[in-house]
Design a protein around this nucleic acid. Sequence first.
RNA 1: GCGCCCGUAGCUCAGCGGAUAGAGCACCGGCCUCCGGAGCCGGGUGCGGGGGUUCGAGUCCCUCCGGGCGCGCCA
Length: 576
Amino acid sequence: MWDELKAAYAQGLEEAVRRAVEAGELAPLPDPLPAFAVERPREAAHGDLASNLALVLARSVRMPPRAVAEAIARRYPFPAGHVAALDVAGPGFLNARLDSLWHAEALARVLEAGEAYGRTPPDPARGPVLVEFVSANPVGPLNVVSARAAAVGDALARILEAAGHRVHREYYVNDAGGQARLFGQSIMARVRELLGDALSLPEGGYQGEYLVDVARAFLAEVPEAAHAPAEGPQADAMADRAAAFGMARMLDGIRASLERYGVRFDAYVSERELRRAGEVERAVAELERRGYVDRREGAVWFRSTAPDLGGLDDKDRVLRKSDGEYSYFAVDVAYHEGKYARGFATLIDLIGPDHHGYLGRMRAAMRALGHPPDSLEMRVVQLVRLVRGGEVVRMSKRRGEFVALDDLLDEVGADAARFFLVQRHVDSPLDFDLDLAVAQSDENPVFYVQYAHARIASILRRPEAQELLARAGETDLSLLREPEEVALIQWLAELPGEVRLAADLREPHRLPRYALELAGRFHSFYNRHRVLGVEPQLSLARLRLIEGVAVGVRCALALIGVSAPERMERIGAGVS
RNA sequence: GCGCCCGUAGCUCAGCGGAUAGAGCACCGGCCUCCGGAGCCGGGUGCGGGGGUUCGAGUCCCUCCGGGCGCGCCA
């Protein structure tokens, strides 16, 4: 909403410059003026919009910036847009103040748009975006880093959609290869344990106790597993069956957890299926056809350091190991190539910290296959530490004492989990304070925001409010002129820009912050001014204002998958 | 050693090259006959160091210091 206004202001300023030049107050300037900025100042005292135009022009017209600014201000074509006043400040900024008509119009637009506020209609000219996230190996329940990836990835997808992109959410299932085999062997070790042998897990195997249940179920499903040898080809075959069985089971659990969490994928893509469909061979053959493959030391290599690949990678990568197996990387190349083949223009992967550094080689591969390397993006989702009572909670999947997504949901609920996990910049590590997340207090940001919404709902439910709204004709929103009212409207007007920025920068954490600020401004307003019990016209305008705030809260929370309740249960407020 | 990320208030973190760098928590003091006090208002300290680019640098470049991560024919 600010964008149009900024553009109008910029235009007005350019016009003012032309007039000043014609009047001989400024030296002649090139036709398209040099680039200058129009922005929202951080300080309210600096007006509603500020421009550095005079500072930019100072050098070429050889005048002090303030003098340039004054010349421009004198020639500014009022009335234009909704600028009510212009003044020169600081080193030569041109600060504009808006009139209350603009604020009234801004609020009216929020109310009119309702739940669609802040959303941009899809632009068919832009290619669809594929967001791949979580993609945790199906060897156990999701841990908290996956929970973070799920919250962030889903929020990012929602934000991109709101910004007018077509989005596809995908989970890549690593259900083949070395880890899968190890997983199957770990299950078989548990099977033998159930049959009375001492537990002997393979080197680096999965230690989680939950595999005992998997082993029991596998034994029930495939009784002959009891007679499988511990080693040899038959053992391998049985381990593969155990792996497939166990992974299917784990994946079901993962899907159920995600469902509880409110995160849905459009597709789960199986590595095993990719291999079976021959996509890996095809991708490797295509790289070879294009001249990026070497054979040496018994292996097949991707020449990612080839000079025409732009130095994206610093080392060649193995595609096919000397034992004849494809590397993880080769399969992933095939997977990514497939994403383009399916028509996606932009690929965004959320990856774990252990995949850091993976981007270069994958971009090199995509470039070798003829795709623009910049169209593949990866964001590292950093670690999460759970903190309880000021102490870090230790977690280890290998040792089986993890805290799973399900445990987190049991403890704090989906709203708090998602809000907290999205709140921070993805690539910085996050400490998740479990006590704070369940605190029924003002310190808890989720409650702070949800409370603001419930409070508004509560006011709107009151009979006096209902009555006013019911017989309301035209509401004069320009009655809203108190600083707290203006501050709320201006912040509401920021939402569309904030959504766009969050989409462009791939930074979902902006939305929880936005919501927090909105709630804060609402509480400040509410504490200072009465909505009901003032004169009816003003009361009506304020009712519309708080409706607008509720819309803003709902929109912001919806984009991160957090609910906006109409009521909140007061804990401990018993009958008495 | 090479590469990437990070270093902002006592703590957790924001900060689109702009003006006097902001929130929350913690600490101190105020505010309910009144729409949900799960709230509001006030109080103070900081950009790791040094160069550079710029009218202007927390933000860009170089360098040093400190911390994390990566550098497999693992996935």
